[in-house]
Write a protein that binds this DNA or RNA. Sequence first.
RNA 1: GGGGUGGUAGUUCAGCUUGGUUAGAACGCCGGCCUGUCACGCCGGAGGUCGCGGGUUCGAGCCCCGUCCACCCCGCCA
Length: 405
Amino acid sequence: MKRTHYCGDLRREHERREVTLCGWVHVRRDHGGLIFVDLRDRSGRVQVVFDPAAGEEIMESAHRLRAEFVVQVSGEVSLRPKGTENSGLPTGEIEVRAKALLVLNESSTPPFVVEDESDAAEAVRLRYRYLDLRRPSIQRVFFNRHRITKAIRRHLEGHGFIEVETPVLTKSTPEGARDYLVPSRANPGAFYALPQSPQLFKQILMVAGFDRYYQIVRCFRDEDLRADRQPEFTQVDLEMSFVDREDVMAVTEGMLADVFREIKGAEPGRPFPRLSYREAMERFGSDKPDTRFGLELVDAASVAREAEFKVFRQALESGGRVKGLNAKGCGSFSRKEIDDLTEEAKKFGAKGLAWMKVTPDGLESAIVKFFTPGQQAEIRRLLSAEPGDLLVFVADAEAVVHEAL
RNA sequence: GGGGUGGUAGUUCAGCUUGGUUAGAACGCCGGCCUGUCACGCCGGAGGUCGCGGGUUCGAGCCCCGUCCACCCCGCCA
Protein backbone atom coordinates (compact mmCIF):
# COMPACT_ATOMS: atom_id res chain seq x y z
CA MET A 1 0.00 0.00 0.00
CA LYS A 2 1.19 3.46 -0.79
CA ARG A 3 -0.36 4.85 2.36
CA THR A 4 -0.82 3.84 5.97
CA HIS A 5 -3.49 6.33 7.06
CA TYR A 6 -6.02 8.87 5.85
CA CYS A 7 -5.11 12.49 6.60
CA GLY A 8 -8.29 13.35 8.48
CA ASP A 9 -8.11 10.31 10.76
CA LEU A 10 -4.93 11.27 12.60
CA ARG A 11 -5.32 12.21 16.28
CA ARG A 12 -3.15 12.59 19.34
CA GLU A 13 -3.16 8.82 19.93
CA HIS A 14 -1.08 8.47 16.76
CA GLU A 15 1.74 10.43 18.37
CA ARG A 16 5.22 9.15 17.44
CA ARG A 17 3.69 6.85 14.82
CA GLU A 18 5.45 6.75 11.45
CA VAL A 19 2.82 7.35 8.77
CA THR A 20 2.63 7.63 5.01
CA LEU A 21 -0.10 9.78 3.50
CA CYS A 22 -1.29 10.33 -0.04
CA GLY A 23 -3.32 13.35 -1.00
CA TRP A 24 -3.68 16.76 -2.55
CA VAL A 25 -1.83 19.89 -1.45
CA HIS A 26 -4.61 22.02 -0.02
CA VAL A 27 -2.47 25.03 0.78
CA ARG A 28 1.21 25.78 1.36
CA ARG A 29 2.46 28.31 3.86
CA ASP A 30 6.12 28.91 3.14
CA HIS A 31 7.99 30.74 5.88
CA GLY A 32 11.33 30.51 4.19
CA GLY A 33 12.54 28.29 6.96
CA LEU A 34 9.59 26.20 8.07
CA ILE A 35 7.12 25.21 5.40
CA PHE A 36 3.57 24.16 6.32
CA VAL A 37 1.49 22.15 3.90
CA ASP A 38 -2.11 21.16 4.53
CA LEU A 39 -2.62 17.79 2.92
CA ARG A 40 -6.14 16.79 1.93
CA ASP A 41 -7.82 13.52 1.06
CA ARG A 42 -11.42 12.35 1.27
CA SER A 43 -11.24 12.03 5.04
CA GLY A 44 -10.18 15.60 5.74
CA ARG A 45 -6.88 17.37 6.09
CA VAL A 46 -3.80 17.46 8.26
CA GLN A 47 -0.87 19.81 8.62
CA VAL A 48 2.50 18.58 7.38
CA VAL A 49 5.60 20.44 8.59
CA PHE A 50 8.82 20.61 6.63
CA ASP A 51 11.71 21.56 8.92
CA PRO A 52 15.10 22.61 7.53
CA ALA A 53 16.56 19.96 9.84
CA ALA A 54 15.12 17.36 7.46
CA GLY A 55 17.65 18.31 4.81
CA GLU A 56 18.07 20.64 1.92
CA GLU A 57 16.69 18.33 -0.73
CA ILE A 58 13.27 17.85 0.82
CA MET A 59 12.98 21.55 1.62
CA GLU A 60 13.68 22.33 -2.01
CA SER A 61 10.87 19.98 -3.12
CA ALA A 62 8.49 21.32 -0.49
CA HIS A 63 9.21 24.85 -1.63
CA ARG A 64 8.11 23.91 -5.14
CA LEU A 65 4.78 22.44 -4.03
CA ARG A 66 1.69 24.20 -5.29
CA ALA A 67 -2.05 23.87 -4.72
CA GLU A 68 -3.54 20.55 -5.92
CA PHE A 69 -0.24 18.78 -6.43
CA VAL A 70 -0.73 15.10 -5.64
CA VAL A 71 1.91 13.89 -3.22
CA GLN A 72 2.99 11.06 -0.99
CA VAL A 73 4.42 12.16 2.35
CA SER A 74 6.07 10.04 5.03
CA GLY A 75 6.88 11.27 8.47
CA GLU A 76 6.21 11.09 12.16
CA VAL A 77 3.03 12.22 13.84
CA SER A 78 3.80 14.62 16.66
CA LEU A 79 1.89 16.86 19.00
CA ARG A 80 1.97 20.48 17.95
CA PRO A 81 4.02 22.85 20.12
CA LYS A 82 1.94 24.40 22.90
CA GLY A 83 -0.06 27.35 21.67
CA THR A 84 0.02 26.39 18.00
CA GLU A 85 -2.86 23.92 18.08
CA ASN A 86 -5.69 24.68 15.69
CA SER A 87 -9.02 24.05 17.37
CA GLY A 88 -10.82 24.63 14.09
CA LEU A 89 -9.45 21.40 12.66
CA PRO A 90 -10.23 17.85 13.85
CA THR A 91 -6.54 17.06 13.33
CA GLY A 92 -5.52 20.37 14.88
CA GLU A 93 -3.74 18.92 17.90
CA ILE A 94 -1.12 17.13 15.84
CA GLU A 95 0.99 17.52 12.73
CA VAL A 96 3.12 15.27 10.56
CA ARG A 97 6.83 16.03 10.58
CA ALA A 98 7.87 15.16 7.03
CA LYS A 99 10.84 12.91 6.35
CA ALA A 100 10.13 12.01 2.74
CA LEU A 101 8.18 13.71 -0.02
CA LEU A 102 7.27 12.27 -3.39
CA VAL A 103 5.40 14.35 -5.95
CA LEU A 104 3.05 11.91 -7.69
CA ASN A 105 1.58 14.51 -10.01
CA GLU A 106 1.90 18.23 -10.47
CA SER A 107 -1.03 20.50 -11.16
CA SER A 108 -1.48 23.63 -13.16
CA THR A 109 -2.93 26.54 -11.25
CA PRO A 110 -6.59 25.68 -10.64
CA PRO A 111 -9.16 28.11 -12.06
CA PHE A 112 -10.84 28.33 -8.69
CA VAL A 113 -9.95 27.49 -5.14
CA VAL A 114 -10.92 24.04 -3.93
CA GLU A 115 -12.75 25.20 -0.81
CA ASP A 116 -16.03 24.44 0.91
CA GLU A 117 -17.73 27.61 -0.27
CA SER A 118 -16.94 28.25 -3.88
CA ASP A 119 -18.21 31.46 -5.40
CA ALA A 120 -17.25 30.38 -8.91
CA ALA A 121 -20.09 30.33 -11.40
CA GLU A 122 -21.77 27.00 -11.99
CA ALA A 123 -20.55 26.88 -15.58
CA VAL A 124 -16.94 27.19 -14.43
CA ARG A 125 -17.40 24.56 -11.76
CA LEU A 126 -18.96 22.15 -14.23
CA ARG A 127 -16.23 22.72 -16.76
CA TYR A 128 -13.71 21.65 -14.13
CA ARG A 129 -16.01 19.13 -12.52
CA TYR A 130 -13.12 17.04 -11.18
CA LEU A 131 -11.98 20.06 -9.16
CA ASP A 132 -15.47 20.88 -7.95
CA LEU A 133 -15.83 17.30 -6.78
CA ARG A 134 -12.72 17.68 -4.61
CA ARG A 135 -14.50 20.21 -2.43
CA PRO A 136 -15.18 18.70 0.98
CA SER A 137 -18.75 19.99 1.04
CA ILE A 138 -19.46 18.27 -2.28
CA GLN A 139 -17.82 15.05 -1.19
CA ARG A 140 -19.95 15.15 1.94
CA VAL A 141 -23.06 15.16 -0.27
CA PHE A 142 -21.92 11.97 -1.97
CA PHE A 143 -21.11 10.28 1.32
CA ASN A 144 -24.45 11.30 2.77
CA ARG A 145 -26.27 10.02 -0.25
CA HIS A 146 -24.54 6.71 0.16
CA ARG A 147 -25.58 6.54 3.81
CA ILE A 148 -29.15 7.48 2.96
CA THR A 149 -29.63 4.71 0.41
CA LYS A 150 -27.91 2.29 2.76
CA ALA A 151 -30.35 3.23 5.54
CA ILE A 152 -33.29 2.83 3.20
CA ARG A 153 -32.13 -0.59 2.05
CA ARG A 154 -31.49 -1.73 5.59
CA HIS A 155 -34.92 -0.59 6.74
CA LEU A 156 -36.85 -2.14 3.88
CA GLU A 157 -34.83 -5.32 4.14
CA GLY A 158 -35.92 -5.51 7.76
CA HIS A 159 -39.56 -5.27 6.70
CA GLY A 160 -39.50 -8.09 4.21
CA PHE A 161 -39.04 -6.09 1.02
CA ILE A 162 -36.94 -7.42 -1.81
CA GLU A 163 -35.05 -5.16 -4.16
CA VAL A 164 -35.95 -5.52 -7.83
CA GLU A 165 -35.04 -3.97 -11.14
CA THR A 166 -37.44 -3.16 -13.93
CA PRO A 167 -36.75 -2.42 -17.60
CA VAL A 168 -35.71 1.07 -18.60
CA LEU A 169 -36.43 0.84 -22.31
CA THR A 170 -40.19 0.51 -22.39
CA LYS A 171 -43.35 1.70 -24.05
CA SER A 172 -44.57 5.22 -23.60
CA THR A 173 -47.28 5.61 -20.97
CA PRO A 174 -49.87 8.36 -21.14
CA GLU A 175 -48.93 10.32 -18.03
CA GLY A 176 -48.58 14.05 -17.69
CA ALA A 177 -44.89 14.54 -18.35
CA ARG A 178 -43.29 14.06 -21.71
CA ASP A 179 -41.15 10.97 -22.27
CA TYR A 180 -37.56 10.85 -23.32
CA LEU A 181 -37.43 8.81 -26.50
CA VAL A 182 -34.77 6.41 -27.71
CA PRO A 183 -34.81 5.45 -31.37
CA SER A 184 -34.84 1.73 -32.09
CA ARG A 185 -32.27 0.45 -34.55
CA ALA A 186 -34.07 -2.86 -35.00
CA ASN A 187 -37.41 -1.22 -35.74
CA PRO A 188 -36.76 1.89 -37.81
CA GLY A 189 -39.21 4.67 -37.05
CA ALA A 190 -40.12 3.20 -33.68
CA PHE A 191 -39.00 4.51 -30.31
CA TYR A 192 -38.55 3.31 -26.79
CA ALA A 193 -39.58 5.61 -23.97
CA LEU A 194 -37.61 6.04 -20.77
CA PRO A 195 -39.73 5.68 -17.62
CA GLN A 196 -41.04 8.92 -16.10
CA SER A 197 -41.36 6.87 -12.94
CA PRO A 198 -40.67 3.20 -12.32
CA GLN A 199 -44.18 2.03 -11.55
CA LEU A 200 -45.02 0.52 -14.91
CA PHE A 201 -44.29 -3.03 -13.91
CA LYS A 202 -45.44 -2.99 -10.34
CA GLN A 203 -48.84 -4.48 -10.99
CA ILE A 204 -47.20 -7.47 -12.63
CA LEU A 205 -45.03 -8.08 -9.60
CA MET A 206 -47.89 -7.58 -7.18
CA VAL A 207 -50.25 -9.83 -9.12
CA ALA A 208 -47.49 -12.40 -9.32
CA GLY A 209 -47.38 -12.50 -5.52
CA PHE A 210 -44.06 -10.87 -4.72
CA ASP A 211 -45.96 -9.20 -1.88
CA ARG A 212 -43.53 -6.37 -1.23
CA TYR A 213 -40.68 -4.98 -3.29
CA TYR A 214 -38.75 -1.78 -3.68
CA GLN A 215 -36.29 -0.20 -6.03
CA ILE A 216 -34.10 2.87 -5.85
CA VAL A 217 -34.29 3.93 -9.41
CA ARG A 218 -33.83 6.65 -11.98
CA CYS A 219 -36.80 8.58 -13.35
CA PHE A 220 -36.75 10.59 -16.57
CA ARG A 221 -39.01 13.45 -17.48
CA ASP A 222 -38.48 15.51 -20.59
CA GLU A 223 -39.69 18.81 -19.17
CA ASP A 224 -38.07 22.21 -18.81
CA LEU A 225 -35.74 22.62 -15.89
CA ARG A 226 -35.91 24.76 -12.79
CA ALA A 227 -33.35 25.56 -10.17
CA ASP A 228 -34.56 22.62 -8.06
CA ARG A 229 -35.66 20.33 -10.87
CA GLN A 230 -33.55 18.04 -13.02
CA PRO A 231 -34.49 16.02 -16.10
CA GLU A 232 -33.39 12.84 -14.38
CA PHE A 233 -33.58 12.02 -10.71
CA THR A 234 -33.81 9.07 -8.35
CA GLN A 235 -36.92 7.81 -6.62
CA VAL A 236 -37.62 5.20 -3.99
CA ASP A 237 -40.40 3.08 -5.42
CA LEU A 238 -42.08 0.58 -3.14
CA GLU A 239 -45.18 -1.55 -3.31
CA MET A 240 -46.95 -3.71 -0.76
CA SER A 241 -49.76 -6.23 -1.07
CA PHE A 242 -52.65 -6.79 1.38
CA VAL A 243 -52.20 -3.52 3.25
CA ASP A 244 -54.12 -0.31 3.85
CA ARG A 245 -53.06 3.33 3.85
CA GLU A 246 -51.85 3.22 7.46
CA ASP A 247 -49.51 0.32 6.73
CA VAL A 248 -47.88 2.19 3.86
CA MET A 249 -47.46 5.36 5.89
CA ALA A 250 -46.05 3.40 8.83
CA VAL A 251 -43.38 1.79 6.68
CA THR A 252 -42.34 5.02 4.99
CA GLU A 253 -42.36 6.91 8.28
CA GLY A 254 -40.08 4.33 9.85
CA MET A 255 -37.86 4.47 6.80
CA LEU A 256 -37.52 8.24 6.98
CA ALA A 257 -36.89 8.08 10.71
CA ASP A 258 -34.05 5.65 10.02
CA VAL A 259 -32.60 8.04 7.48
CA PHE A 260 -32.67 10.96 9.92
CA ARG A 261 -31.11 8.80 12.61
CA GLU A 262 -28.32 7.85 10.19
CA ILE A 263 -27.62 11.32 8.82
CA LYS A 264 -28.49 13.65 11.66
CA GLY A 265 -28.06 11.29 14.56
CA ALA A 266 -31.41 12.61 15.75
CA GLU A 267 -34.69 10.95 16.48
CA PRO A 268 -37.54 12.79 14.75
CA GLY A 269 -40.76 13.26 16.68
CA ARG A 270 -43.19 10.45 15.93
CA PRO A 271 -45.73 9.83 14.70
CA PHE A 272 -45.21 12.42 11.96
CA PRO A 273 -47.98 15.03 11.83
CA ARG A 274 -50.47 14.08 9.13
CA LEU A 275 -52.47 16.58 7.15
CA SER A 276 -55.25 15.81 4.76
CA TYR A 277 -55.00 17.53 1.41
CA ARG A 278 -57.96 19.70 2.36
CA GLU A 279 -56.40 20.76 5.64
CA ALA A 280 -53.04 21.53 4.05
CA MET A 281 -54.67 23.74 1.44
CA GLU A 282 -56.84 25.53 4.02
CA ARG A 283 -54.06 26.23 6.48
CA PHE A 284 -51.11 26.78 4.14
CA GLY A 285 -52.48 27.14 0.63
CA SER A 286 -50.10 24.45 -0.52
CA ASP A 287 -50.04 20.65 -0.74
CA LYS A 288 -46.37 20.71 0.26
CA PRO A 289 -46.39 23.25 3.08
CA ASP A 290 -43.29 24.36 4.93
CA THR A 291 -44.62 24.16 8.45
CA ARG A 292 -41.52 25.51 10.19
CA PHE A 293 -42.51 29.13 10.52
CA GLY A 294 -46.27 29.39 10.95
CA LEU A 295 -47.63 31.90 8.43
CA GLU A 296 -50.89 30.03 8.37
CA LEU A 297 -53.74 31.29 6.27
CA VAL A 298 -56.82 32.55 8.08
CA ASP A 299 -60.31 32.54 6.64
CA ALA A 300 -61.64 36.09 6.89
CA ALA A 301 -65.04 35.34 5.37
CA SER A 302 -66.94 36.03 8.59
CA VAL A 303 -65.77 39.65 8.62
CA ALA A 304 -65.65 40.12 4.87
CA ARG A 305 -69.31 39.14 4.52
CA GLU A 306 -70.47 41.92 6.86
CA ALA A 307 -68.06 44.69 5.93
CA GLU A 308 -68.61 47.56 3.53
CA PHE A 309 -65.49 46.66 1.56
CA LYS A 310 -66.76 45.74 -1.87
CA VAL A 311 -63.70 43.84 -3.05
CA PHE A 312 -64.16 41.35 -0.23
CA ARG A 313 -67.93 41.09 -0.55
CA GLN A 314 -67.88 40.55 -4.27
CA ALA A 315 -65.24 37.85 -4.05
CA LEU A 316 -67.44 35.94 -1.64
CA GLU A 317 -70.61 36.50 -3.61
CA SER A 318 -69.02 35.08 -6.73
CA GLY A 319 -68.06 31.92 -4.87
CA GLY A 320 -64.50 32.93 -4.00
CA ARG A 321 -62.63 33.14 -0.72
CA VAL A 322 -61.15 35.87 1.42
CA LYS A 323 -58.11 34.79 3.39
CA GLY A 324 -55.31 36.59 5.10
CA LEU A 325 -52.06 35.97 6.85
CA ASN A 326 -50.12 37.75 9.53
CA ALA A 327 -46.61 38.82 8.53
CA LYS A 328 -45.23 39.08 12.06
CA GLY A 329 -43.16 42.19 12.66
CA CYS A 330 -43.45 43.43 9.09
CA GLY A 331 -45.52 46.47 10.07
CA SER A 332 -42.52 48.67 9.34
CA PHE A 333 -42.56 47.77 5.65
CA SER A 334 -42.40 50.82 3.41
CA ARG A 335 -44.99 51.58 0.78
CA LYS A 336 -42.47 50.34 -1.80
CA GLU A 337 -41.98 47.02 -0.07
CA ILE A 338 -45.71 46.49 0.14
CA ASP A 339 -46.06 47.38 -3.53
CA ASP A 340 -43.44 44.76 -4.30
CA LEU A 341 -45.48 42.21 -2.36
CA THR A 342 -48.53 43.22 -4.35
CA GLU A 343 -46.63 42.71 -7.59
CA GLU A 344 -45.56 39.29 -6.37
CA ALA A 345 -49.18 38.39 -5.58
CA LYS A 346 -50.31 39.58 -9.00
CA LYS A 347 -47.88 37.16 -10.61
CA PHE A 348 -50.03 34.41 -9.19
CA GLY A 349 -53.20 35.86 -10.59
CA ALA A 350 -54.40 37.98 -7.69
CA LYS A 351 -55.98 41.28 -8.63
CA GLY A 352 -54.37 42.97 -5.69
CA LEU A 353 -53.27 42.72 -2.12
CA ALA A 354 -55.27 44.23 0.72
CA TRP A 355 -53.08 45.12 3.66
CA MET A 356 -53.33 46.63 7.12
CA LYS A 357 -50.58 47.67 9.46
CA VAL A 358 -51.12 46.97 13.14
CA THR A 359 -50.17 49.90 15.36
CA PRO A 360 -50.67 50.49 19.07
CA ASP A 361 -53.62 52.74 18.10
CA GLY A 362 -55.30 50.15 15.91
CA LEU A 363 -55.32 49.17 12.26
CA GLU A 364 -53.82 51.49 9.69
CA SER A 365 -54.55 51.33 6.00
CA ALA A 366 -56.45 52.98 3.17
CA ILE A 367 -59.20 50.41 3.57
CA VAL A 368 -59.80 50.40 7.33
CA LYS A 369 -62.58 52.96 6.88
CA PHE A 370 -64.70 50.21 5.32
CA PHE A 371 -64.61 48.24 8.54
CA THR A 372 -66.51 49.06 11.74
CA PRO A 373 -64.53 49.15 15.00
CA GLY A 374 -66.09 45.83 15.88
CA GLN A 375 -65.03 44.29 12.61
CA GLN A 376 -61.53 45.64 13.03
CA ALA A 377 -61.31 44.03 16.43
CA GLU A 378 -62.54 40.78 14.93
CA ILE A 379 -59.83 40.91 12.25
CA ARG A 380 -57.17 41.42 14.89
CA ARG A 381 -58.55 38.51 16.90
CA LEU A 382 -58.71 36.16 13.90
CA LEU A 383 -55.12 36.87 12.88
CA SER A 384 -53.72 37.16 16.43
CA ALA A 385 -52.46 40.59 15.42
CA GLU A 386 -50.10 42.55 17.61
CA PRO A 387 -48.64 46.02 17.11
CA GLY A 388 -45.83 45.91 14.55
CA ASP A 389 -47.48 43.22 12.42
CA LEU A 390 -48.55 43.47 8.81
CA LEU A 391 -51.78 41.78 7.75
CA VAL A 392 -52.27 40.93 4.10
CA PHE A 393 -55.41 39.62 2.40
CA VAL A 394 -56.31 38.22 -0.96
CA ALA A 395 -59.92 38.00 -2.14
CA ASP A 396 -60.42 35.87 -5.21
CA ALA A 397 -61.22 32.38 -6.43
CA GLU A 398 -59.94 29.80 -3.97
CA ALA A 399 -57.05 28.57 -6.14
CA VAL A 400 -55.82 32.11 -6.70
CA VAL A 401 -56.07 32.97 -3.02
CA HIS A 402 -54.00 29.96 -2.03
CA GLU A 403 -51.38 30.47 -4.73
CA ALA A 404 -50.91 34.15 -4.07
CA LEU A 405 -50.66 33.96 -0.30
C1' G B 1 -43.21 28.66 -25.70
C1' G B 2 -42.98 33.63 -22.80
C1' G B 3 -40.47 37.07 -19.46
C1' G B 4 -36.37 38.96 -16.35
C1' U B 5 -31.21 39.47 -15.13
C1' G B 6 -26.38 38.97 -16.55
C1' G B 7 -21.64 38.25 -19.91
C1' U B 8 -15.25 43.22 -18.30
C1' A B 9 -8.09 39.89 -15.72
C1' G B 10 -7.50 32.83 -13.89
C1' U B 11 -11.97 33.76 -10.26
C1' U B 12 -15.72 37.08 -8.04
C1' C B 13 -17.02 41.86 -9.26
C1' A B 14 -16.83 47.64 -9.95
C1' G B 15 -16.84 50.97 -14.17
C1' C B 16 -22.38 51.84 -18.13
C1' U B 17 -26.75 56.69 -15.14
C1' U B 18 -23.98 61.60 -18.10
C1' G B 19 -19.39 58.26 -24.52
C1' G B 20 -13.46 61.36 -23.76
C1' U B 21 -6.10 60.56 -20.62
C1' U B 22 -3.08 54.53 -19.62
C1' A B 23 -10.24 49.95 -18.01
C1' G B 24 -9.82 49.26 -11.79
C1' A B 25 -10.41 46.26 -6.90
C1' A B 26 -10.16 41.82 -4.13
C1' C B 27 -8.63 36.93 -4.22
C1' G B 28 -5.54 33.86 -7.17
C1' C B 29 -0.79 33.63 -10.02
C1' C B 30 4.86 34.70 -10.67
C1' G B 31 9.66 36.43 -8.27
C1' G B 32 12.26 37.89 -3.69
C1' C B 33 12.50 38.00 1.81
C1' C B 34 10.71 35.41 6.06
C1' U B 35 11.71 29.09 11.55
C1' G B 36 5.20 28.18 14.30
C1' U B 37 1.83 29.38 10.29
C1' C B 38 -3.17 27.73 9.49
C1' A B 39 -7.31 33.92 5.45
C1' C B 40 0.64 33.48 7.23
C1' G B 41 3.19 38.31 6.70
C1' C B 42 6.24 42.04 3.94
C1' C B 43 8.29 43.93 -0.92
C1' G B 44 8.00 43.76 -6.18
C1' G B 45 5.64 42.04 -10.77
C1' A B 46 2.79 39.86 -14.69
C1' G B 47 -2.03 39.33 -16.35
C1' G B 48 -7.74 42.18 -20.62
C1' U B 49 -10.45 40.10 -28.18
C1' C B 50 -14.74 44.52 -22.11
C1' G B 51 -19.21 37.32 -25.25
C1' C B 52 -19.63 37.86 -30.83
C1' G B 53 -21.24 40.82 -35.37
C1' G B 54 -22.89 45.31 -37.23
C1' G B 55 -24.36 50.52 -36.59
C1' U B 56 -24.28 55.76 -34.56
C1' U B 57 -20.13 59.14 -33.41
C1' C B 58 -14.32 62.97 -34.30
C1' G B 59 -14.22 59.10 -30.46
C1' A B 60 -17.85 53.21 -27.84
C1' G B 61 -16.58 48.65 -22.21
C1' C B 62 -20.56 52.65 -21.94
C1' C B 63 -25.60 54.45 -26.84
C1' C B 64 -28.64 51.54 -30.88
C1' C B 65 -29.78 46.85 -33.68
C1' G B 66 -28.85 41.76 -34.22
C1' U B 67 -26.86 37.27 -32.32
C1' C B 68 -24.83 33.52 -28.95
C1' C B 69 -24.34 31.78 -24.07
C1' A B 70 -25.51 31.42 -18.74
C1' C B 71 -28.71 31.85 -14.60
C1' C B 72 -33.66 32.82 -12.52
C1' C B 73 -39.05 32.99 -13.02
C1' C B 74 -43.92 31.80 -15.59
C1' G B 75 -45.97 28.07 -18.63
C1' C B 76 -44.89 22.86 -18.31
C1' C B 77 -43.73 18.99 -14.68
C1' A B 78 -46.47 14.23 -9.53
